[in-house]
Simulated scan of single mutants.
Amino acid sequence: MKKILCVGPLIPPVHGQSLAFTRFYESVENGRKLLINTNFEHLGMTGKVIGNIKVIFLTFLKIIFFKIDKVYFTCSRSFLGSFKDVILINLAALKKIKIYNHLHGSDFYEYFHSVPLWYQKILYNSYNKVDTSIVLLDSMKEQFKDFPDMNLEIVPNFYDKELDVVFEKKDLKTINLLYLSNIIKSKGIFELLESFEVLSRKYDNIDLSIGGDFLSDEYMNKDDIKLKFLEKVKNNRKINYIGKVYGEEKIELLKKSDIFVLPSYYKSEAFPISIVEAMRCGNAIVSTNYKYLPEIVDENNGILVEPKSPESLYKGIEYLLKNKTLLKNIQTRNKIEAEEKYSLNRYTEQLHKIILSEDS
């Protein structure tokens, strides 16, 4: 039996791309798949270099010695990562293997135009050999506008299967706000803390739960973020920092919360799985007018605020606090919409139709 080679990041750690890749990989029958795991986020630079060298070696080994008819990979937007992608694409093309690329971020076009011209030509020649690229939204097709002959397919993100449970009705006596993402500056965590500080002095019936691990971004390293974050939350009894959350603890957090807040300006933000999960659990969404987020969040399922603006975030949250009937209507609508549009079964079925069907 010919096999599909899946090249991408398995969980843990859990983030949108690793969860999406893992769920697709799990959905492929065991005798049909081969794996190369590219999740090196927990490693330092030396570890990442060694990890990418290992991936390149495994790519040669598996493409040359196994009967593979399809390759599925999640494209990278860094030099080390994209270099291994280039080798994968060209080896697969040399063996006349069909190539499927899945983009989970919003920065491929930006990355492509940021590299030196000599490397841009290598990327251009390589990605022109990709048969199909999969994006999360129709507007994300623009990420590949330098490749007009590339076939593009749309598969929206999903909520995980563990959220298909019965939810209790929310009473809204206490309004529970929830931030559930990596704790990095560009996810808007400090704007949220600043706006909540003002809100918590004005409203007695609100609290804020925060779940996630500390990571670095282009603004701050994780140690500085952790110090600043812990200093800001230590004296506010209405803020509950839980740390990393998974499984039942995560479900309970999502179920008991009322408003999910993600004031992100993260450089590769596209279609956060966390927003879909929060919708499925009956949360109204407060997020930012940034990149592709306005295509997911609108007046029907939440509020959009300006990025990097604690004042705008404060006003957006307060609008929902003052309009409980609107809040209830949004919560009900979000549960239904998420179930109809963003189930895991729907996600994997769409990918199987594109990648694994006989005529693909």
Score class of each variant (00 low, 15 high):
210 I>G: 00
196 F>W: 15
252 E>I: 11
261 V>G: 01
181 S>G: 08
191 E>V: 06
150 M>R: 10
159 Y>P: 10
253 L>V: 04
140 M>Q: 03
249 E>A: 02
202 K>E: 09
259 I>K: 03
236 N>W: 01
261 V>D: 01
167 F>R: 11
152 L>R: 08
245 V>E: 05
219 Y>N: 11
259 I>D: 00
201 R>S: 12
190 F>T: 15
250 K>R: 08
145 K>D: 12
144 F>P: 04
254 L>E: 10
170 K>W: 06
176 N>M: 02
204 D>Q: 05
201 R>P: 08
135 V>T: 14
208 L>V: 12
196 F>Y: 04
154 I>V: 15
162 E>S: 05
249 E>T: 09
234 K>A: 13
190 F>K: 01
246 Y>G: 00
261 V>K: 01
245 V>D: 10
141 K>S: 02
186 S>W: 06
235 N>L: 02
192 L>Q: 02
271 F>Q: 03
244 K>I: 12
248 E>K: 11
167 F>Q: 03
216 S>L: 09
214 F>W: 14
200 S>Q: 08
151 N>E: 07
180 L>R: 10
261 V>S: 00
229 F>G: 02
248 E>W: 12
220 M>F: 06
183 I>Y: 05
184 I>A: 00
142 E>I: 03
260 F>R: 08
165 V>M: 14
152 L>D: 04
181 S>M: 10
178 L>H: 01
224 D>T: 03
180 L>H: 03
231 E>C: 04
269 E>T: 01
178 L>W: 06
149 D>R: 14
247 G>N: 07
170 K>S: 00
189 I>E: 09
242 I>F: 14
226 K>N: 13
165 V>E: 08
262 L>D: 06
264 S>G: 06
252 E>N: 15
257 S>V: 05
251 I>D: 01
244 K>E: 06
270 A>W: 00
157 N>L: 05
213 D>K: 14
259 I>F: 02
166 V>N: 07
208 L>A: 10
219 Y>S: 15
216 S>Y: 09
163 L>H: 00
225 I>H: 07
180 L>S: 13
265 Y>N: 00
196 F>M: 15
272 P>D: 11
163 L>Y: 02
272 P>A: 11
132 T>Y: 01
250 K>D: 06
244 K>V: 15
258 D>M: 04
